[in-house]
Design a protein around this nucleic acid. Sequence first.
DNA 1: ATTGAAACGGAGGGTTGCCTCCGCCACAGT
DNA 2: ACTGTGGCGGAGGCAACCCTCCGTTTCAAT
Lengths: 192, 192
Amino acid sequence: MTAQPFPVSEIVASRRPHRKDAARNYDALLAAAREAFAEHGSEASLEDVARRAGVGIGTLYRNFPTRRHLFESVYAGEVNDLCRFAEEVTGQEPWEALASWLRRFVDYTVTKRAIREALDGESEIFLACRESMYAAGAPLFERAQGAGQARRDIAFDDLLRMVAGITATNFLDDAQRDRVLSVALDGVRAAR
Amino acid sequence: MTAQPFPVSEIVASRRPHRKDAARNYDALLAAAREAFAEHGSEASLEDVARRAGVGIGTLYRNFPTRRHLFESVYAGEVNDLCRFAEEVTGQEPWEALASWLRRFVDYTVTKRAIREALDGESEIFLACRESMYAAGAPLFERAQGAGQARRDIAFDDLLRMVAGITATNFLDDAQRDRVLSVALDGVRAAR
DNA sequence: ATTGAAACGGAGGGTTGCCTCCGCCACAGT
DNA sequence: ACTGTGGCGGAGGCAACCCTCCGTTTCAAT
């Protein structure tokens, strides 16, 4: 077992089938599931997912034996992207890097809806996702703290849940969501 | 049409039946619905609500012809309490009054879960609730702004949604929720 | 081109929830 | 106490969804 920085992608990608038609269906299912979960939460209808993907219900169950498998696959994919994004912000100033990364949540519709449940999920994959997100984000937070730009009396977990809560909420438009996120992040900045 | 400060209670209370057994069932249904909605969101099973209330499904539908009627009744009740609470905090300092009122959200499990949907709902009752909440809360916010204790570059609606998002999120415990809420509210305080 | 292995789709049986309808029962007014 | 009006509960028809199973189709290796 080699130490992977973000082991999540390995777990998930290994299940992608080899045959051409099968791989196409697998991708279509993931895309359809992402859509459906974003719209209806993790309780979305699996038959609806299959319909959206233009695929028989049997095909869905062959690729993802349970709802949990499907959900975790979608979720893990987004978490993985998010983790990789952390590498792209290391060039920025400490506070800016942290803020950029946190704002990235907003782009992940499934994660938004799921994060509240997932932060408490106890399956192997959810735990791996959590670990990955911490591995990716906590250093950014600590760097900002070290630079005197983020307050020291809260934990990274507090911060993550705060942002998750805000991004999971409906706003009038994206501008409002952004405004509110900025306000909340101002509360995280070190008092001057 | 007399101008009511909080017209919501009128709309809802008027539907309570007069006969003793009927009134008891009505109350039991509301209590059971509050519980069920808090647990499973506004999609909770109505048959489950009837079961919890120890009442036949027919009785539920007689009192609340649609799921929406039931949900709105529960929601309106909590909003109404919240509005009345605003009167109790007027003795406090401007910022403290606002903060106390906002923290009151945390106690309303249904409101918490529903607020995201309800803030965009367009039924008569949802609109009335929104109006009531604004009538109750906005003065507290404006008073804090007037006293130089709250920043002026955000709207009351922004604030409400921010708090709603945070309180609707799962936290490890109440202490964490409170901590996070404090951080976010620090962002609302006027910069010194 | 052939062919066997693998993937495909959807029929179908079971479950759960929605809502209506109606025979029975309890309350409140006399 | 009597009575009839209104409330009561839940059976039952309908729809959506879950998941399994299997006859048919498609792929890709030879």
